[in-house]
Design a binder for these strands. Structure first.
Lengths: 194, 194
DNA sequence: ACCTGAACACCGTTCAAGT
DNA sequence: ACCTGAACACCGTTCAAGT
């Protein structure tokens, strides 16, 4: 599936064509259908291959649950941003083994941190929502590179009608990494036991 | 654009075809291109029409910032879930006037609540991320109705390998509305001033 | 067991032309 | 100003057939 990932990285979701993929593999188009049921299947395999998690490099686990959670979540986001087509695909497909492993890790970490069993699922889904929302949004800015200039100009002309977000420069702020980390901190504050 | 929204509701993003849209309008396909630049333009118009916000019905504003924020955000989510194709489209397109209005409202509310100017953008994007992640995920479950049975079975067979999320029944819990509200509460806790 | 070409039923959009 | 049909360059996938 490395060939599919390469194609997706280069041309985006719409650029992955069964014909183009076959070309990259040096085979006929219909050969693909021996190995794969249909095009969606290709997406599923490519998506899962991108979501593997190896865990923190140092054996710092068990001592700082918060650092551990942040590490997994930031690595998850980074993995998806390395392949900007992946984020918008993930919530639309069945969950593969690699993303389930990440959720398992997260669940263990939060449990160990003292999050009540009754709050555990809500906590996990909240973090899922935060990461997915942030990454889907960020990734789409990567994809529409050429439109940026036009969008920028459209915004400043429109923003007279939206004085508050204009004043805080909401749409011009592009410290995405910092905003992600800081907002994640706020969310973990809210989720922390006691 | 009501015709486009209807088609999208009925057949999803892939079901909206220029040919089908023209049929619904009782015109030739190419007539559409007089009113619209291309297909993406149709999506933009349909998307914005779905995101209008009328504000809270009672004049309870200014007294309870938290209720006001929750009202807008839950209404935003509900509007997108009424049109399940809309959520995954929103982060991929340029921001239209209606969603900008919602962000303006949110910004005013949080500002009035005492959120520091330095934290304002992070707070808004955090809420954006949470709502978008939750809704994109939830909406896709609506779309893949038929696959549910198969997915369910696949999950229980797989879940032996993921004991923690199996034990909390993470993937079987389907109180989506409750989880959204509760998680939003946690996030607002974390974002609250002081 | 694995690969293939031809064919089918579609797409979005250009273009030249109509009223 | 608005609408149209024909044509172009694509799609994913079925099927019957090859090795």
């Amino acid at each position: 599936m490395a060939a599919a990932v390469e194609l997706l990285d280069a041309h985006g979701v719409d650029g992955l064509t069964m014909r183009r993929l076959a070309d990259g593999l040096g085979s006929g188009v219909m050969s693909l259908y021996w190995h794969v049921d249909n095009k969606e299947n290709v997406f599923d395999l490519a998506l899962d291959s991108v979501l593997e998690y190896r865990g923190p490099q140092t054996a710092q686990q068990a001592q700082d649950w918060r650092a551990e959670a942040v590490h997994m979540l930031e690595d998850w986001r980074a993995s998806m941003l390395r392949h900007p087509w992946s984020a918008s695909l993930l919530p639309r497909r069945a969950l593969g083994p690699n993303i389930l492993s990440r959720l398992e890790v997260l669940s263990k970490t939060l449990s160990r941190a003292g999050v009540a069993d009754a709050d555990l699922n809500v906590a996990i889904w909240s973090l899922w929502n935060y990461v997915m929302g942030a990454t889907v949004t960020r990734a789409s800015f990567d994809l529409s590179d050429e439109d940026r200039a036009a969008a920028q100009q459209r915004l400043t002309s429109l923003s007279e009608r939206y004085p508050t977000i204009e004043r805080s420069r909401l749409l011009l702020d592009n410290d995405w990494d910092g905003a992600f980390r800081q907002g994640l901190g706020f969310l973990l504050d809210g989720l922390s036991p006691r």
